[in-house]
């Protein structure tokens, strides 16, 4: 049963992470094109660092770092008169109340907590990629459009929300679509974050079973389990590809891009 549920886990992760990382990306892109210098440094630094380092390193890093950061903050808020240092040599010790999740919490709380850490980590990493795509898309909006907006007396903020944001999606979509594919292909890394996902179950169930421990003894089937996963992901990416293709055709309709132009010619 766990094996089938883990597919739901993966799909849930995708469903939550995609909008969340888009939000992060939007924030990052807005920061990067800000006129306030420190803010734009933060935005650009965020994009550059996350892109320059392997994403898997980030996954491993953020899960511990977020956990420790939260516990550190709670520790300071809840036990102000704790005598010892938090970091003692190779240990990280906070008071009992600050532990996350609480030691006596039921199992599902632990699972949800681990899962949300994973979602947040994914959102941070893919937010940077999305920020890069959106940043490029915002700059791809034709200059003439912005100048026209200025001529109509719109302020910078109005121009951004009324002209740039509605028009940028068609430029952003190829990049975002690709990002979606990358996101799908990154989901098996959940396994490394300690979530019991498809890879975990494939390894568990596929391993050699002896008749002593189970009613269904079998040899080493892990190869077939992973073959099944391979096919699952192939089908998933193929379906996404087709859907994105359709969406792209829908969005280019009537736009001043070469794609839109080709559509117009084909119609007449």
């Amino acid at each position: 049963m766990g094996f089938y549920w883990s597919f739901v886990t993966v799909l849930t992760l995708l469903a939550i992470t995609a909008p969340l990382s888009l939000t992060f990306g939007f924030g990052g892109a807005m920061a990067a094109r800000s006129r306030i210098a420190p803010l734009s440094w933060v935005g650009k630094g965020y994009i550059a660092i996350v892109r320059g380092v392997p994403d898997i390193a980030f996954f491993l890093f953020f899960v511990i770092a977020l956990d420790q950061g939260l516990e550190y903050l709670r520790h300071h808020a809840m036990c102000p008169d704790w005598p010892d240092a938090i970091r003692q040599g190779n240990d990280f010790i906070v008071c009992q109340d600050a532990k996350l999740p609480q030691g006596n919490a039921p199992q599902w709380v632990h699972e949800i907590y681990g899962f949300s850490l994973a979602v947040f980590t994914f959102a941070i990493v893919f937010g940077a990629f999305a920020a890069n795509v959106l940043y490029g898309a915002m700059r791809a909006v034709p200059k003439a459009q912005l100048e026209t907006a200025e001529a109509y007396g719109m302020s910078r903020r109005q121009t951004f929300w009324r002209i740039v944001v509605p028009q940028m999606w068609v430029y952003a979509l190829p990049g975002l679509g690709n990002l979606w594919m990358v996101l799908i292909k990154a989901t098996p890394l959940l396994f490394l974050l300690g979530v019991e996902d498809v890879v975990y179950w494939a390894r568990e169930l596929g391993a050699t079973k002896t008749p002593r421990f189970t009613d269904y003894p079998h040899g080493d089937w892990r190869m077939y389990y992973f073959l099944a996963l391979l096919v699952f992901y192939l089908a998933f990416t193929r379906v996404s590809e087709i859907v994105l293709d359709r969406l792209m055709r829908r969005l280019t309709k009537g736009q001043a891009t070469s794609g839109g132009e080709a559509q117009r010619r084909a119609a007449t």
């Binding site: 989901t187 098996p188 494939a202 992973f226 996963l229 391979l230 992901y233 990416t237």
Partner: peptide
């Protein structure tokens, strides 16, 4: 090779 995760490819 482009449609499936590299991670799964390694495992398989």
């Amino acid at each position: 090779f482009r449609g499936s995760p590299l991670f799964i490819q390694f495992f398989f």
